[in-house]
Design a protein around this nucleic acid. Structure first.
Lengths: 158, 158
DNA sequence: TGTCAATAGTTGATATGTCAAGTATTGGTA
DNA sequence: TACCAATACTTGACATATCAACTATTGACA
């Protein structure tokens, strides 16, 4: 009887290896997600808001143009409808600034504020440690394999 | 430049292999989750409700005792506060039946109804195919490796 | 130049998730 | 046997997610 089966207290084996992989994947991601969430939420932001801030910081260091709303949506780690409201909340907390794009007035460009940058900076070290902690069960070589396998999973889906 | 980095349109490498693994994991799980969600939601249930039904079916085939609410919570693939309301909705749809346990009146025991069983049965084949489709990027041997690596990730966290 | 589909985002309605505080019941202990 | 902490939920209040319908603006084409 496999480890995962025991974890879920099931007494029937998985229907297929694919099934076991899917369940394991969702379960493992949930674990790591909660890990990260526990880190950022005490600072008054959700994991998705944190992700938006990181996208904006990344964009900020290379160009001052601001990122249009839908491009943020596109870059999110997890697909997220409702980026508008995510940004509303970040703007209310003064972590993000928005402005209508003069060249294409349909677009709203977004920037991270100094306050947002400061928050990220405060979290940087802990984030690094959290990633290490999440993956401490894998040695360096296994991590590379793991990353490669996940890329192979995603590849056929666009 | 790695594949994931391109996917997220980043121009800066990941801070560490652990970081890349974490981001890849959450992203891959999100993909597979949406896959499954697209399958079950047209039938009027969420992925978590589907998960509850599968737990109850699994329990049903081996014992007729019914499963207490908190044990369902415990068996969920993803940690879920608010199983009570999940069950409320399932009961409203008559997919689940609940009853106070006579031996310990604090507990509420849950069963899947014939209607719930029928719904699961209708979804069984498509679910199987969905798992295969999600994992089609991995060959059999790689699937086993993948499962093993994820177990190694989870092991140190309890 | 006027029309119109396509793009970029917003908004409203509703479902769902989440946390803290509350109730009922039990089992242990003085 | 009376008390009290622990268990097993439930409920209320609030935040967030999701979908569809809507507005504003642009770019292409007749």
């Amino acid at each position: 009887m496999g480890r995962l089966q025991r974890e879920l207290r099931q007494n029937r084996p998985f229907q297929s290896t694919a099934h076991e992989a899917v369940v394991g994947l969702i379960r493992t991601a949930d674990l790591v997600r909660r890990h990260m969430t526990a880190l950022v939420e005490p600072h008054g932001i959700t994991l998705q808001q944190f992700n938006v801030l990181r996208i904006l910081r990344g964009a900020d260091t290379e160009a001052r143009d601001g990122v249009p709303t839908l491009e943020i949506a596109d870059r999110m780690i997890e697909q997220t409808p409702g980026v508008t409201r995510l940004l509303d909340r970040l703007e209310a907390k003064e972590l993000v600034r928005r402005q209508r794009c003069p060249k294409d007035r349909r677009q709203h460009l977004c920037w991270i504020t100094p306050k947002g940058l400061a928050l990220l900076q405060k979290l940087d070290e802990a984030t690094l440690r959290s990633h290490e902690d999440s993956m401490k069960g894998l040695k360096t070589k296994d991590r590379a394999t793991f990353i490669r396998l996940m890329e192979a999973i995603r590849a056929p889906h666009q």
